[in-house]
């Protein structure tokens, strides 16, 4: 069975239509099936609809995603209350430990992301992994820093990633490898992106899953939940009867 590859983190500004179009075309050429461009809290339904149409023309499935960088737990819960039902993917960038713990134990969070450049702010430890595994949150790793960093910063990042990936695997936390790129020249083929996961200790099958099966499973699960027919996990409306 052929894999449906996904890149859930193309960091292009959706307002820059030319750049967005170029990135979408390139993703289609590279064989991706699912792509996502993150929105901040300033939601524009028409922009999302336009992107969906553009992606559909290129043969891609667009996934709506919101990224948030909360400073406090309250900010996080407020954001989730407001935006969870409007986006298919919610990613929280955790800048401090309180937010990281809250994000990991909140079932409305899909992806946990940590700053690449400051390794002291990477809070994905065993406690975080345990919370995340109970709430089906996944750990997102962007490959762009691996392409642009050199020397000691890249060494530190690789060491952190290797430790985090080992913890994630121990606790069964799904891993998502995304590009995190804004420029075409840093985009890579899905299998090349998976090969970068080799650098932080993933075997070939797990690396390929992290760019295909794992992101696709999250999208599928959330689309079911956001569907009007969803009642509870495992229960959905098949047919509605007429009122007597």
């Amino acid at each position: 069975m052929t894999r449906a590859f996904a890149d859930l983190h193309l960091r292009v500004n959706p307002k820059d239509q030319q750049a967005t179009q170029r990135l979408i075309n390139r993703a289609a050429k590279f064989g991706y099936r699912l792509i996502s461009i993150p929105f901040t809290s300033a939601l524009r339904e028409d922009e999302i609809a336009k992107l969906k149409a553009t992606c559909s023309e290129a043969g891609l499935d667009f996934v709506s995603r919101a990224d948030f960088h909360p400073r406090t737990e309250n900010e996080l819960t407020h954001f989730l209350r407001k935006f969870r039902r409007r986006f298919e993917i919610i990613c929280i960038t955790c800048d401090n430990k309180e937010v990281a713990r809250q994000a990991a134990k909140d079932r409305r969070v899909d992806l946990l992301s940590f700053p690449s450049l400051d390794y002291r702010k990477r809070f994905f430890d065993r406690a975080e992994a345990e919370l995340a595994s109970n709430c089906l949150a996944a750990l997102e790793v962007d490959v762009k820093p691996l392409l642009i960093l050199e020397g000691p910063p890249r060494v530190r990042l690789l060491a952190s990633l290797r430790r985090e990936v080992a913890i994630a695997r121990e606790f069964g936390v799904p891993l998502i490898v995304s590009s995190g790129v804004a420029e075409e020249r840093f985009m890579r083929l899905p299998r090349d992106m998976a090969s970068l996961a080799f650098l932080f200790g993933l075997d070939e099958a797990s690396a390929l899953d992290s760019v295909s099966t794992n992101p696709a499973a999250i999208v599928k699960r959330n689309r079911e939940k956001l569907s009007s027919r969803f009642v509870a996990p495992g229960i959905s409306i098949i047919k509605e009867g007429k009122a007597p």
């Binding site: 691996l146 392409l147 840093f186 992106m193 090969s195 970068l196 080799f198 650098l199 070939e204």
Partner: peptide, 12 residues
């Protein structure tokens, strides 16, 4: 092979 593929992906 894995080493070389990963290295090739980092060529910018």
């Amino acid at each position: 092979l894995g080493m070389v593929r990963a290295s090739l992906a980092t060529v910018t």
